[in-house]
Design a protein around this nucleic acid. Structure first.
Length: 474
RNA sequence: GGCCCGUUGGUGAAGUGGCUUAACACACAUGCCUUUCACGCAUGCAUUCACGGGUUCGAAUCCCGUACGGGUCACCA
């Protein structure tokens, strides 16, 4: 049996939304589950869409996600080059081979003629399809036209009757009528192959055994198979995966939220958490577990359990998964995903490293992504706090004024500003004002933080600093 | 418009003819715990699997039709 090989084949657009990433993860998992290899191939046959630095961007993203590339543009591999624009002669050779075999033909039709055909089709309300005008040109005619410098493309000859059937690992049997298949272009007039053609050639030449891609290719797959058959090549296993939708149930776009991996990453979501969440989106393991490391995923991943229906990207669930990973973070990593956001939002110049470290760590269990640290800590960075109605109501309770007065005095008496001494001050207040529980902590919490919830009070007060606390108590 | 695919709670989903009076998780609500929040625990949240028929002793699961949603019909990938 052949070694399992899968590939991720993005266009270098410099942007990767979570749907693409999920496909890459699935491809990686299928390969590694079978002890196989994962290949990165850059599909840049559309020169107009090329973006500078996109390849590095892709490498960077995959690396962050702990997806290891076995072969690719920046790796060694015996099937290279791995960038399609560097493989042009190969496609030309195979396209011409196809012509010789009578499975493809030269087409000299101009844009104008095609445009007219298209208009005609529109007028008659039928789907446009190339009419095979150049299909039966004689050898002499072809040579003549080429000699005259006429531009040409190479088109694949499609059967006009019959039905094509193939088996998809997640969708099952797919049948498409052959008469619906257009004589598609294989080689464009600029000498570049079309995506469809380059894809088949490269997948075969690179030994790809499992083709995993979005289900927008379901209908085109019979064309791929015809190519494999024409060359007498073994067809790969097809695994089409459904789409990831935005919260509004529509296709993901920049409009409906943070659809891109980098956006999420920059907001302080952890790559492991994103990967974990994405795999569970439209796929489920046999057990009820939901938190998996990459190694565990590799062990248990079974592509036949991928769901056929599209799934909605749910940021709330991602938050939950991410919070789970954040809780387990060591302090350095926690600092990495939070401090940059703090620095951006607040002036930290008078804060010590120790202070920042402590601030971040008391909120470790309270945030679900790095940037959330900003909103949750704003009480440390403003002079005045305003109380909402709920707080005001609580403050109007009997005895709170006295409690606060006592507490203020105890704070003033503190010589050395430590968490322990602050805790002692609270305990002394408890005795002297003879209040306890909620009636003790709540007035202090509200008056010093402006909120009814938060981390341990002594820690919070410690970080606020004596001066600010005293100011707020007045 | 033709063709293809899909439809289980707000979300992700399990379920492949009887064990299902439909798991589990997120979200939400309530209670317990806690100074509070979070954590943790407990409880509630689809009398029902888009709808209508059919097959069967029995259907979310099989078949047909309808509705809705999406995809596809490029010298884009």
């Amino acid at each position: 049996m052949n070694k399992v090989r899968t590939r991720y084949a993005p266009s270098p657009t410099g942007f990767m939304h979570v749907g693409n990433l999920r496909t890459a993860i699935f491809e990686y998992l299928v390969a590694k589950h079978n002890n196989g290899e994962f290949i990165l191939r850059i599909e840049d046959t559309d020169q107009t869409r090329k973006v500078e630095g996109a390849v590095d961007f892709i490498y960077n993203t995959l690396k962050l996600c702990n997806i290891n590339i076995d072969e690719g543009p920046n790796n060694k591999g015996k099937y290279g080059p791995y960038i399609q624009s560097e493989r042009l002669p190969i496609y030309k050779e195979y396209a011409e081979k196809l012509v010789q075999m009578g499975k493809a033909y030269y087409c000299f039709c101009t844009e104008e003629r095609l445009e007219e055909l298209r208009k005609e089709a529109e007028k008659n309300k039928v789907a446009f399809m190339y009419d095979g005008h150049c299909k039966n040109l004689s050898k002499d005619e072809i040579e003549e036209k080429i000699k005259n410098g006429e531009k040409y493309v190479i088109r694949q000859k499609m059967p006009k009757e019959g039905i094509s059937v193939y088996n998809d690992l997640v969708y099952g049997e797919i049948k498409v009528e052959n008469k619906l298949l257009e004589d598609q272009i294989l080689l464009k007039s600029d000498g570049y192959p079309t995506y469809n053609f380059a894809n088949v050639i490269d997948d075969h030449l690179m030994g790809i055994t499992h083709v995993i891609r979005g289900n927008e290719y379901i209908m085109a797959t019979p064309k791929y198979n015809l190519l494999y058959e024409a060359f007498g090549w073994e067809k790969p296993t097809y695994i089409h995966v459904s789409m990831v939708l935005g919260e509004d149930g529509q296709k993901l776009s920049k409009r409906n939220g943070d659809a891109s991996f980098m956006d999420l990453y920059n907001e302080g979501y952890l790559p492991e958490a994103i990967v974990n969440y994405l795999v569970m989106l439209g796929w489920s393991p046999e057990t009820n577990d939901e938190i998996f490391s990459m190694d565990e995923l590799i062990k248990i991943f079974d592509p036949s359990r991928i769901s056929k229906s599209p799934s909605v990207f749910d940021i709330k669930k991602l938050n939950w998964v991410n919070a789970h990973y954040i809780k387990k973070l060591d302090i350095e990593s926690l600092l990495n995903i939070t401090v940059p956001h703090l620095k951006e939002a607040y002036d930290l110049s008078d804060k010590t490293e120790e202070w920042i470290k402590k601030l971040v760590s008391i909120y470790q269990d309270h945030i679900s992504y790095g940037k959330e640290i900003v909103e949750v800590t704003d009480l440390f960075f403003k002079e005045k706090i305003e109380l909402n109605d709920e707080c005001k109501e609580f403050m109007s309770a009997e005895g709170t004024n006295n409690t606060l007065k006592v507490f203020e005095k105890e704070i003033e008496n503190i010589k050395e500003w430590t968490v322990e001494n602050i805790n002692d001050a609270i305990m002394l207040t408890k005795e002297k004002a003879s209040v306890k529980g909620k009636m003790l902590y709540m007035p202090i919490r509200i008056k010093t933080t402006g909120q009814m919830h938060g981390p341990e009070l002594p820690d919070t007060i410690f970080l606020l600093g004596k001066e600010l606390v005293l100011n707020r108590l007045k």
